[in-house]
Design a protein around this nucleic acid. Structure first.
Lengths: 103, 103
DNA sequence: GCAACATATTGACAAATATCGATATGAACG
DNA sequence: CGTTCATATCGATATTTGTCAATATGTTGC
């Protein structure tokens, strides 16, 4: 998987309505899957699928505790996502300098 | 379209490999569609499709100039996207205060 | 060990998305 | 006006994604 593909995957974590709902809940702190499930209108396997996408993107981390799995937002992952967004939207300081983007 | 859906659409702008390539090019400043097309391995109609998604998300703005269309990153749109990302990842200051997330 | 429970994985399917080629729109220029 | 050129839109198709039901995995407590 190329760099663009991998970075797109980070943003893809934020592309789904239910994943945004999940992130919003996790802003309050750690939460277990069953608690998240209570507040969403999806099945258990679907939640598990979304949590995997969020974790794979590095935006959320999980902690196993007996039969429960607790999830929380990764501050590092969130910072990395924010940096990445900036990387793709911050306008270069001096476009007139030429030698920009390999021209 | 609900709020979550609309906000997911902003992030969706960043979810595609080719759109990330496009944004990277636009960081150098305004660029016309034909110039973008030269540096991508996609057809013209596909580029047009991607530009529509980027513009609809507010991340890119277009400027018509005769038969050409010039695109550039919207600094306001980029800032809005960054704020939105923060909205979904910043951890609440005082979770112990209760009354968090409508509990 | 076994029953109950929480979560993950699998397989199937519908909906959304990226892509293309063909065609439409609309500007510039003779 | 008709031709050329740049971009947008349309229709079709392959791929990806979100969803579910069913099943598997792994933990707890009897």
């Amino acid at each position: 998987m190329g760099d663009y593909q991998r970075q797109a995957a980070v943003f893809r974590a934020f592309c789904d309505e239910n994943r945004l709902r999940i992130l919003e809940m996790l802003r309050c702190g750690e939460m277990c899957a069953c608690k998240l499930l209570e507040n969403l209108d999806i099945g258990q396997s679907t939640l598990s699928h979304h949590m995997k996408i969020l974790c794979d993107a590095g935006v959320v981390v999980s902690r196993a505790d007996g039969k429960w799995t607790h999830y929380r937002i990764s501050e590092e992952g969130a910072a990395r996502a924010a940096d990445l967004l900036k990387t793709y939207t911050a306008i270069h300081a001096d476009p007139s300098a030429g030698a920009c983007c390999g021209d």
